[in-house]
Amino acid sequence: MESTDLFRQIEFIKEVDKLKYIVRKTKLFNSDRNENDAEHSWHLALMAIVLAGHANVPVDLLKVVKMLLIHDIVEIDAGDTFIYDTQKSHDNTAEERAAANRIFGLLPEAQAAELMAVWEEFEAQQTNEAKFARAMDRLEPLLQNTSNNGGTWAEFGVTYEKVYTKKQVIQQGSATIWQYAEQLINESVDRGILER
């Protein structure tokens, strides 16, 4: 490997350290401390390893883990958009695309193209791997909010309908995990930590 490739890879590694400073709205389990994007990505990757047997169909676990570790890198430039934000769309934006081009572009060309393709696959939500990765991304905040007596739902006045609508995507990656998630959502209403 050429030293210029190594230099570019090290620059990328330094740049993505900034993910540790991007603070999310959700809080750690049973905590009042907000999670950062790096913690979130690591946790999702580990969740995928542990829960892969519940995917609707067998998935390429390495690809899923790659998706989960890089899916929020664009937030270094674009910032984290709260999933229930009423002012800004949580969907992929031109801002995120520009961030992906800049950050992945720090890498040698072949690696940049590979990671960009993995990021785009996650965003498109068409493959089994992307669907399972998205299921993990939607499950973790649900678990956090139920552990924190409603967490961001209570803090931002998020209702059952909004939570149910956003979380339904879990079933595309895992019907089994969706059954569990749906039960948690309904129990949250019963517990009074999610408004109907």
Results as ranks from 00 to 15, higher is better:
residue 2 E to T: 06
residue 4 T to Y: 08
residue 6 L to F: 14
residue 7 F to Y: 14
residue 13 I to T: 11
residue 21 Y to P: 01
residue 21 Y to K: 15
residue 27 K to M: 10
residue 28 L to H: 06
residue 30 N to R: 11
residue 32 D to E: 10
residue 34 N to W: 02
residue 36 N to S: 09
residue 39 E to M: 07
residue 41 S to N: 09
residue 43 H to S: 12
residue 44 L to A: 01
residue 50 V to C: 04
residue 51 L to A: 04
residue 53 G to M: 03
residue 54 H to P: 00
residue 54 H to M: 09
residue 55 A to T: 00
residue 57 V to L: 05
residue 62 L to F: 09
residue 67 M to C: 02
residue 71 H to T: 02
residue 78 A to Q: 01
residue 78 A to P: 00
residue 81 T to M: 06
residue 86 T to L: 07
residue 87 Q to L: 13
residue 87 Q to S: 14
residue 90 H to I: 10
residue 96 E to I: 05
residue 96 E to D: 11
residue 100 A to T: 08
residue 106 L to W: 06
residue 107 L to T: 08
residue 109 E to F: 09
residue 113 A to S: 08
residue 117 A to Y: 12
residue 120 E to G: 10
residue 120 E to H: 08
residue 121 E to M: 11
residue 121 E to D: 15
residue 127 T to G: 07
residue 129 E to V: 06
residue 136 M to Q: 12
residue 144 Q to L: 15
residue 150 G to Q: 12
residue 150 G to F: 07
residue 154 A to R: 14
residue 156 F to W: 12
residue 157 G to P: 03
residue 157 G to W: 00
residue 158 V to E: 02
residue 159 T to R: 14
residue 163 V to I: 12
residue 165 T to K: 14
residue 166 K to Y: 11
residue 168 Q to H: 12
residue 171 Q to G: 07
residue 180 Y to T: 05
residue 181 A to Y: 01
residue 182 E to K: 13
residue 183 Q to P: 04
residue 188 S to P: 00
residue 190 D to L: 15
residue 191 R to L: 14
residue 195 E to V: 07
